[in-house]
Each structure stands twice: as C-alpha cells, then as structure tokens.
Computed example of a mutant assay.
Amino acid sequence: MTEFAVRFWGVRGSIAVPGADTVRYGGNTPCVEMQAGGQRLIFDGGTGLRVLGKTLVATKNIQAHLFFSHSHWDHIQGFPFFTPAYIAGNCFHIYGPVTYNGYSIKQSLSNQMVDPNFPVPLQIMQADLHFHDLQAGEKITLGEVTVETGSLNHPNYALGFRVTWRGKTVVYASDTEHYPDRLDRSLVHLARDADILIYDANYTEEEYHHPVTPRQGWGHSTWQAGVQVAGAAQVKQLVLFHHDASHDDPFLDQIEAQVQQILPNSVLAREGMVLQLS
C-alpha cells in the first residue's frame, strides 16, 4: 500500500439530522476511517459507523482498530448497529479514555446496550473484541503506523489522535473548545506540521458569543479558532468537522467560502469525502 486514505462516514455533531437540508454534507454523527500501512483505523462510532459497517459486512476476518475520543452519545451511538462486531472471525481493538467518574470505554459502550436502552447486551457480539484504556500522551504502534494521543478541552475528558505513516500525518481533534485568551498548546503540539488537521468547528463566532444563548463552556470550537490552530501548528490542510445540527447545506457553504478566503485549500468535511496522501 502506497497511500494514506481518510474517509468520512459521519461529520455531524450532537445528533443525527438526516433530511433534505443536509444531503450534501450529511447527517450522520462522527465516524472517520483511515487506512495506511495495511492498517484500518476508525475514529469514533457515531451513526456513521453503521454506514461503514454495511460496506464491510461482506469482508471476512476483518482486523481493525477503533478509537473513541470520548463516550458522549453522538460518538458511541453507532456501535450497537456496527454489524461486523456481531460476526465471528472479525477482530477489533477498541481504545478510549476513562471518564472522570471512572467508566472505562468498555463500560461506556456496555451501558448503552442494556435494558431499557437497547434489546441486546454487548456480550452478544461474536467478534473478538479487545478493549484498551487510553490516557493523553500515550503512543500506540501498529506496524508502520503510529497513533499519538493528546488531551482536548471538552466536558468529562476527550482525546485527540495523531496518526503518522511514512512521514505523513493526519490529526483528528473532534470535540474540543478553544481558550478565549490563548492557544491550546497541547493541541498545537499534537497537530504540529500535520498534513491534515480534522478540527471541531461546531459553531460560528457569532453563535459562540451570542448575547442570549452563548456557547462558551459547551466543549466545541469555531472555524476561526481552527484557522488559528492550523496556522500556529503549520498544518498543510484544515478540515472543519462536527457540524452543528442546525447548520443546513447552504449555511455550511457560506462557512466554507469564508474559511477558504483565508486558507484556500481548507474544506468542510462531507460524508463520503476521501482525502488521499501519497
């Protein structure tokens, strides 16, 4: 394999919003797949994970690594509908942070699959599941691929991921809030010299600072802050992600036009979009 491919299966934040107003950017919640060096890495398990699973059902003996940034519902709600996890012979290594109240990623995934939330428990899954608790600063080596972790500014703790293969790097930083008076140096370090930075731009600055319903402290950022982080980290391409449920296609078109006036090669993430690094 001579390419590093990034595919977006879900790009929406908070809640899935399918419908006529979200056709072009998509309505599924977060799920990003990366393939490099013979490894399949999946980041977050929102409703986009169900769609990814449908494409993998016919594949036998799947080996993949599933990284959860955190266990808020929009990032785990696709896991119970991930069909390959129910098929014997498949193998998934599942990684995620422990919550502040002590729940492991296995506990968080299990808790949403118990009565009255779901009809069958996690234990009914027939694939070989290996769970790994992660902390910021850890590095995972998967053949030629390395995955570094860094802390994000989000309620109840979240992780960002830096994936590197043969000198090419993609950083996944969903669900993080910028600081009002300074750059997040931890995030700038995680994103240093990255080829692609996938960044949470849930709000506009106008929404974030709204006089009646401000969004400060909600754990999400703006495209303007993403531009600042990308510049400080010398990122080659900024990809804005985790679109707000209320932002329809025309609204997102406007945001993309604005950011491209500053960083011409920046894009807003769309379901089905594939970025390739040679």
Rank of each mutant, 00 (worst) to 15 (best):
L238G: 07
A201T: 06
D128C: 09
C31F: 04
D248P: 09
S110I: 11
R12P: 00
T99Y: 01
S110V: 06
F131P: 00
F43G: 03
G37P: 06
A85F: 02
L56M: 10
R270M: 15
L52G: 00
Q63S: 09
E148L: 12
L159I: 03
T149A: 01
G160C: 05
V51N: 14
L277M: 09
P119T: 01
V120G: 06
L66N: 04
Q228W: 12
D181Y: 08
L252W: 03
P250G: 10
V212S: 15
H70A: 15
T146K: 08
Q258M: 11
P18F: 00
T204H: 04
L263V: 15
P155E: 08
H132G: 05
S186M: 14
I198H: 02
R182S: 08
S151N: 05
W223H: 06
Y86F: 15
N156Q: 08
A64T: 03
R185Q: 07
H189P: 10
A158S: 12
A257L: 14
A233K: 11
Q234F: 05
A88G: 12
I94T: 02
T141D: 15
M34G: 02
K106Y: 08
L129D: 01
N111Y: 13
M113Q: 14
G167C: 06
G48E: 02
A257G: 10
L240M: 13
D184F: 00
N111Q: 09
F92H: 10
S14H: 12
E33S: 10
A36N: 08
T47P: 02
V274L: 13
E148K: 12
V32R: 04
P214F: 10
V267C: 14
I255W: 08
V6C: 13
S186Y: 05
D253S: 11
N111T: 07
V57D: 12
G48I: 01
T2V: 10
V11T: 06
L187S: 05
G226C: 01
L129N: 04
H243L: 15
F131E: 00
Q77L: 14
E138W: 03
L49M: 09
V227I: 15
V51M: 14
Q135V: 14
P116R: 00
L240W: 04
L238Q: 04
I76L: 04
